[in-house]
Design a protein around this nucleic acid. Structure first.
Lengths: 288, 288
DNA sequence: TTAGTGTAGT
DNA sequence: ACTACACTAA
């Protein structure tokens, strides 16, 4: 028996909607922790991982773990039919499908959608264990979402890739197109007053990192960036980069993205990389 | 060595942006006078001529004349990435391209754009010498930009052309569509008080003029009209009409537009026109 | 601030 | 033809 009630469903809808560009099918798991979802894009480059913790819901009843594969497109299509103030209920009695119910505030209009589960797609994937962020990633950037969105948009119109480089002094986003190139540099600024602090870009760097990322993927999550204040970008030379938005206290939506050809920073990490693929063009995949 | 610094770049950006509808490539010239740009639309009907005099810039260093062909689209795209308070610097060390730099007021965020020059398009064109406006144009109308914009917008929705006629008594903007026609008439009013004077329409007429103009071109500059208070419209039976907005004291943005079929005002100017093209339909071009 | 419509791009 | 973005109107 599963019955989740959501009073303010627009974030839920918008977050799922934003993932549609990249993924169409997702594995959903409901447990006492909350509603979680993970999906991989068809090119195996990006993974979306979402947690709506139980506290986000008005009412959260989940007698035993439910795991199911759903079509995100179908679910979003259903959610789009909800009106802004509708109370959304997600129910599953059996293991064939879920029912979404939208109830108007006056309780006089009720819309119900039954969604059948879909067959799980074959490829399985692991998501990095994130118990200890600091030890996994060489650099963690925290900046206003709008700022990051603008970087991606500014660069994306004429360029395919962005190179993100973190050094002790600064963070650089760099892209090159046919007839132009672009660099945006964030200098480490230690002397910020309080009001500046809120909108500033913070970098926590353990080692210099430089990664090439596909801008089309970045732009696929641009809609998402509009929904949140802050974004956390975690970079590593050995595991996929992660872009995270916090949802309330415990929730999150995370994008994991495999870099395109890795740029090795030889001086810094000699002997540390196990899975070098020198000369390989294009994206690595999540299964590399 | 070229290095121009602009503190308030939004006008610069908006003016260039407004030209995008018509032109995509421009010849830029920097000299001690200022930053000037000229471009012709692909149909050879309109020419944009722009001068940002050196006084508009915070810092203006131009050791020797620079002439270059740039993609306005690329330049605008770059300028769009500037934040409102950013200090914009235009630099050129060599003759391959220019670099635009946007520096945040706190100097901690720097965005740099390298734009390569493009190959000059083949068609060359002359811009009328405007040393002596009065002797070139038969009629000069000066009116609030917003007024002119509204005329174009009102007429443009259903009509293709506007006929602008200036006589001793009035200025008439006239457009005809399928099922309706529209006329807006400005009577010469000699008895204006001071407050009316500022928003009034002035006409300086040496000879009656009547020209047919393409409304789609007029509407392409509508965005531009929103940026300025006053517009000067110069009409002639022999040279392209000119629409001018003043930028500060010496600067300007000028549109030259070839009229569509000329309407001859036989009574008034018999024997005065040299380049009659009786029966020709459609726009003349700048090379006629 | 949001919803709907219209256009443009894929 | 569908989707996504932008603009406009409420």
């Amino acid at each position: 028996m599963l019955e989740l009630e959501l009073k303010k469903g627009s974030l839920f809808e918008k977050v799922l909607e934003a993932t549609l560009d990249l993924v169409d099918q997702a594995s959903v798991n409901c447990s006492s922790t909350g509603f979680s979802l993970r999906a991989m894009d068809t090119k195996l480059v990006a993974i979306v991982s979402l947690l709506f913790p139980s506290e986000v819901f008005e009412r959260y009843r989940c007698d035993d773990d439910h795991s199911m594969d759903i079509s995100i497109a179908d679910m979003v299509e259903a959610l789009r039919c909800a009106n802004k103030d509708d109370v959304i209920t997600i129910m599953a009695d059996d293991y064939n499908g879920i029912t979404l119910t939208f109830e108007s505030p006056k309780k006089d209009i009720i819309a119900e959608y039954d969604l059948l589960f879909v067959d799980a797609e074959s490829h399985c994937f692991d998501i990095p264990d994130l118990q200890d962020l600091d030890s996994k990633y060489q650099a963690i950037i925290r900046m206003p979402s709008a700022e990051f969105m603008h970087i991606c948009k500014d660069l994306g119109s004429n360029c395919d890739d962005v190179v993100i480089s973190v050094t002790k002094e600064d963070v650089t986003f760099c892209a090159s197109g046919e007839s132009e190139s672009f660099r945006k540099i964030y200098r480490q600024n230690k002397t910020l007053d309080e009001s500046e602090e809120a909108t500033a870009t913070h970098v926590d760097m353990r080692e210099p990192v430089s990664l090439i990322l596909d801008l089309s993927y970045m732009n696929s999550c641009a809609k998402l960036f509009a929904l949140f204040d802050k974004v956390t970008i975690c970079l590593s030379n050995t595991i996929p980069m992660m872009v995270e938005h916090k949802i309330k206290e415990k929730g999150y939506i995370r994008y994991f993205m495999a870099p395109k050809v890795e740029i090795e920073i030889e001086e810094e990490k000699e002997g540390k990389t196990e899975n070098e693929e020198a000369g390989t063009e294009g994206n690595k995949t999540m299964q590399d």
